[in-house]
Amino acid sequence: MSDTAGTEIERSTYALETLYEHQDHDFVIDTVPHVIAWLAGRGEPQDQQPFLFQMGVVRPSGAEPRSMELMLGWSTEALERRDIDLLSKIARLRSGRTVDRERITENAAYGLALVAISALMPGRRVITMCKGEAPDFVLDATPGALRGVEVAGRSSGGLSALRAVRVEKSARLNARNDISEVHLSLWCAVPRVSELYQVKP
């Protein structure tokens, strides 16, 4: 696929149900309902799958950023085979009848970060989550040389909102001597844009 200037834009297609093969069951089952409620919550024509995210894959080394499109879809039937309560969880999130209603954006961003890790870092798996400190997802817990992914989501604001988050979080992560590799996985619902930003190395 090409943009109007003729530059090739990579397109990646991902089926949400394959997260159960690529990542830990407990993280996936907790985040998938939020992803679906967040993306498909209004029932408007543009809120039908596949959901397209304009995505930038950015490295701080001066390398040219990669522009790509991430197409996300799912089979409800396949997801229900993994989680028989899926539809009731989604309905409760959409109706607000759950204590998680104010965490939909946060938890959806976690689920989408799992998608990004699986699609763009093939073979890498989240082994744990940090409690109260970055990075959110840990890929390698070697003492003094953590490797992981920090996550953030915004309901609106587009790239300007995500880049403000990037500046704030990058400064904190760069100051950490115990982290040897860390990425930022940033997501916005309106418009649907995302960044995967490599902070270290």
Rank of each mutant, 00 (worst) to 15 (best):
E44T: 11
P45W: 08
Q46V: 13
Q46E: 15
D47C: 05
Q48N: 12
Q48G: 08
Q49A: 15
Q49I: 12
P50K: 06
F51T: 11
F51C: 01
F53Q: 04
F53E: 00
F53L: 03
Q54F: 07
Q54S: 09
Q54H: 12
Q54D: 14
M55G: 02
M55K: 01
G56D: 10
G56M: 11
G56E: 14
V57D: 08
V57G: 06
V58E: 13
V58Y: 09
V58H: 08
V58S: 06
V58L: 10
R59M: 07
R59L: 03
P60D: 14
P60C: 06
S61N: 15
S61W: 08
G62Y: 06
G62I: 09
G62H: 06
G62D: 07
A63G: 06
A63D: 10
E64W: 05
P65D: 07
P65T: 02
P65L: 04
R66Y: 00
S67F: 10
S67H: 14
M68P: 01
L70A: 02
G73S: 15
G73H: 12
G73D: 15
W74V: 04
W74P: 03
S75C: 01
S75D: 05
T76V: 05
T76K: 04
T76S: 00
T76E: 01
T76F: 00
E77D: 10
E77H: 09
L79D: 00
L79A: 00
L79Q: 05
E80F: 01
E80W: 01
R81H: 05
R81E: 07
R81C: 09
R81I: 02
R82H: 12
D83Q: 06
D83G: 02
I84M: 10
I84F: 08
D85Y: 09
D85P: 01
L86W: 04
L87G: 03
S88Y: 13
S88W: 13
S88C: 11
K89V: 08
K89F: 05
K89H: 12
I90T: 03
I90D: 02
I90K: 03
A91M: 08
A91V: 09
R92S: 15
L93E: 05
R94E: 12
